[in-house]
Write a protein that binds this DNA or RNA. Sequence first.
DNA 1: CATTAGTTTTGAACGTGTTCAAATCTGACG
DNA 2: CGTCAGATTTGAACACGTTCAAAACTAATG
Lengths: 216, 216
Amino acid sequence: MTTKAEETRERILNAALQLFREKGFDETTMRDVAAAAEMATGAAYYYFRSKEELVMALYVRSTEEKRTFLPAAVERSKDLKKRLRVIIDANFEQFADHRRLFRALARIGMDPSHALSPFAKETAPMRDEGIDYFRTALDGTKVPKDIAEFLPRLLWLYQVGLIFFWVYDESPSQRRTERLVDGTLEIIVRLIQLSSLPLIGPLRKRVASLVRDVSE
Amino acid sequence: MTTKAEETRERILNAALQLFREKGFDETTMRDVAAAAEMATGAAYYYFRSKEELVMALYVRSTEEKRTFLPAAVERSKDLKKRLRVIIDANFEQFADHRRLFRALARIGMDPSHALSPFAKETAPMRDEGIDYFRTALDGTKVPKDIAEFLPRLLWLYQVGLIFFWVYDESPSQRRTERLVDGTLEIIVRLIQLSSLPLIGPLRKRVASLVRDVSE
DNA sequence: CATTAGTTTTGAACGTGTTCAAATCTGACG
DNA sequence: CGTCAGATTTGAACACGTTCAAAACTAATG
C-alpha cells in the first residue's frame, strides 16, 4: 500500500533474486533471504506467500517491462516471422540472467490448479497480455476466419513450450533452443501462409474443430 | 536381492499406493507409509530413495505389465491409427486408478536432470521400450527414409504430451483428452501418409533437418 | 499527550522429507 | 556352537518451508 511497504517488499525481492543467482533456488533458504534483507524469517512471508512467489514476482516484473517496449518493437516490421521472433526473443533476453532459476517455476509449470502456473486463473491477466502480443503480430497477415480466433492462443502456447525447452537446454549458449526456434518458426509461418490455400481447406477445418472441441 | 527383501519392498509399496489413493500424495506422509507397512520411518528409505520413487515404482510396474500384452495387441491390427491408439490407450487404462497421483510425477516431469523424469538417463530403458512400441506400430506403413529414423521418438514425445494433458484434465471422464487424442491422431496419421507425396518433399525435408539439428 | 486501530515485525514452533549412527537380525563359516 | 560380516531396522535428529500468537511500531483521533 504505502511506499514504505513497497520498499520493504522490493528489498526482500532483490535480496532473494541476488541469492538465487549466486547460490541457486534450492540452496537458498527463506532464512537466508530474510537475513540478507535484514529482517526476521516471518517478515518475508508477510510480503510473499511462498518462496515460489518470489520467482513469480520476477515474472510479474518482466511482464511490466515488456509493456514498455514490446508493442512498438512488434510494429517495427511488417514481416510475420520477424514479428513473432521479436516477441519470443524478448522472453529469452529478459530471463537470460535467471534461466536456471526458472526451473523452480517449471516444477509448477504444468499444473493449472497451482496459482503460479501460466495456465492458472490467477495468472490470466498476464496470459491474456501475452496472447495479445501475438494477436497484434498477426495484424496485416491473411488468416482464415475459422482459425483466426484461436491462432494467437496457439502461438502463445507454442511460446510457453519454447520457454520450457530453453529452461532445460544445457547446450552452450542454448544453441539447441536457437535452432528449435529458427526451424519451428519457419514452419509455422509457412503453414499459416499455406492455410489460406483452398487445397488445405479440409485439413484446416479439421484443426479448427479439434481446437474448439478440446477447449470445450 | 533376496525374496524376503522383495516382499518387504512390495509391502511398503502397496501400503503407500493404497494411502496415496485414499488420501492423496501430498496428504500422505512417509511416517504414514512406514506405519501402514508396520516398520520404522527410516526403513522405507532403505528401499526407496524418496517419496517420489514410490510413484516411480508404480510406473516401473506398469512398464513391465505392458510388456506382457502390448506387442501382441499392436500386431492385432494393420491399421496405423488403430495401432497407435492401442499404445496410447494402454497408458490411460493402466493409470486410470492413479491419475491424480501422477501429478506428483508431473511436477518432476520436464526436468531431464531429475532421475525420475521421462527424459532422464536413468529412465532410458523404459523410454526406449516405449519408443520401440511405436517403431513396431509403424512396421508396414510407408514412411520416407529421412523421417523414419526419428518418427518413433516423435510419436513417443507426443504420447508423453498426451499424458501430461490427461493428468490435469478435470473434465468428466477426461473427455477433453479423449477428443484431443481422436483429433490429433487423425491428423498425425494423415500427415504421415501425405509425407510420401512428392509435393510435400521440401516441407518434409525441413522438418527432418530441424529434428536432426535440435537433437544435436 | 493518551488511546486506539491498524500495520508490520518477531522468532519460536510445527510438520514433513530425509539422514544417519547405532542396534538388531541373519546366515555363512570355522 | 561361536563369531563375524553384511543386511536390515530403528528412531532420534536435522533442515527447511511455513504458520502464528504476541510484541513493536505507526499514525490518526479525541
